[in-house]
Write a protein that binds this DNA or RNA. Sequence first.
DNA 1: CTAAATTCTGGCCATGCGGTCAGAAAATAA
DNA 2: TTATTTTCTGACCGCATGGCCAGAATTTAG
Lengths: 217, 217
Amino acid sequence: MRSENKPSGQKNRKGRSFIEQARRAQIIDAAIATIADVGFANASLARIAERAGISKGVISYHFAGKDELVQKVVDQIYTDVADSVVAEITEWTEAPTATAVLRTHILTVAAYMRDHREHLKALSEIFTGFRDPDGRSRYGVQSSDPIYDSLEAVYRTGQERGEFRPFDTRVMAVSQQAAIDHMFAYWENHPEHDLDAYARELADLFEHATRAIPPGS
Amino acid sequence: MRSENKPSGQKNRKGRSFIEQARRAQIIDAAIATIADVGFANASLARIAERAGISKGVISYHFAGKDELVQKVVDQIYTDVADSVVAEITEWTEAPTATAVLRTHILTVAAYMRDHREHLKALSEIFTGFRDPDGRSRYGVQSSDPIYDSLEAVYRTGQERGEFRPFDTRVMAVSQQAAIDHMFAYWENHPEHDLDAYARELADLFEHATRAIPPGS
DNA sequence: CTAAATTCTGGCCATGCGGTCAGAAAATAA
DNA sequence: TTATTTTCTGACCGCATGGCCAGAATTTAG
């Protein structure tokens, strides 16, 4: 079962075979570990296969190519993060303020990365190192557009409620996402830094940046 | 004159020969144009030489290697930017507020890039694509540390004067630099966006994020 | 048990890179 | 002009990669 049949749909008549699922999961795990360990640039198919204890050709057999494998790695981590954030939010019983939503967004993602450093490392390696054949980054700024949209929706809610001052929501979204990304990048270079404290400070920063100007000002 | 003698000092007894200076400048210019045009990944020595109308070996003759060439490209653009910022600041006649310094920093750099798009493109290509043999980024987060230090000095001044609220200066510095970087990245992907307007909005953002809380709040 | 399909192996290949080199060409010195 | 130094050319090398494939091994079907 080569994986070229997937483009015609999620799965053919039957799902992937047992061994196929197991192998794919194993290879994805090995890819995450390898990328986090030696960096994306050195994570050749040969190295990933070596870590998985299989032959290089097996990866080509189960995945259309390195591109699909890396894509699946990102998908898996994203799903993991989203689950974590959703779990946090569903504990809320009443409608939160826009400020609380933004704060929780920052703190929850930071908490996840604090507990999944390998995932963070793999993700950042892929984001900075994964290129298409022309050398363009596969996860450049444009790939953040959906995130920007989500953030902007929250901003507009806050502005309509009078929680937030008027500001350009796109600039705020790009800046906030950039600040979060660099928080992680900074943490990778300064592992001794308290990530949770950083995240709280960052939440404060954007609370001040967004909130409505008090009348007596 | 191979360039390996440079490590022993800036110049030997005499400076570089006439033709040497001209060639180096020409090659650096060709490198900037090539990197901005085809991206760092596709800017091979062969391509750069082709654009300069010379043979590939000439680059190896005048530069120790690709590393030195790229380094010189970055140096030249940095010098250019710094000159531009300094020219702006020396027009001031009186001591500025910390708020004004930060705003000018953002607006001036943005103005420079608005007028030197090719330089911006080359810089961002190098920052994201230039790796050492192990695949680690040569201009990663750690290379921003000097910038962080400068920003933090301004923050502390503002805090001591009561202009700014108390906050973690390192977090603020990382976030501001991240926001500026992504402003340019966003602009590269959305050239129709008014960069000056974006920069003003960003200055507002950090003005609100840093300023002291008004008493009646 | 035999046949067929699936899964795996390990070597091979084309590609493009940065760097090197012997010798040609050009500039400079004598 | 001739000798010497500087500068340039274009071919060549080693290297690592992702992908490919013929055939072996294994599992499943009949």
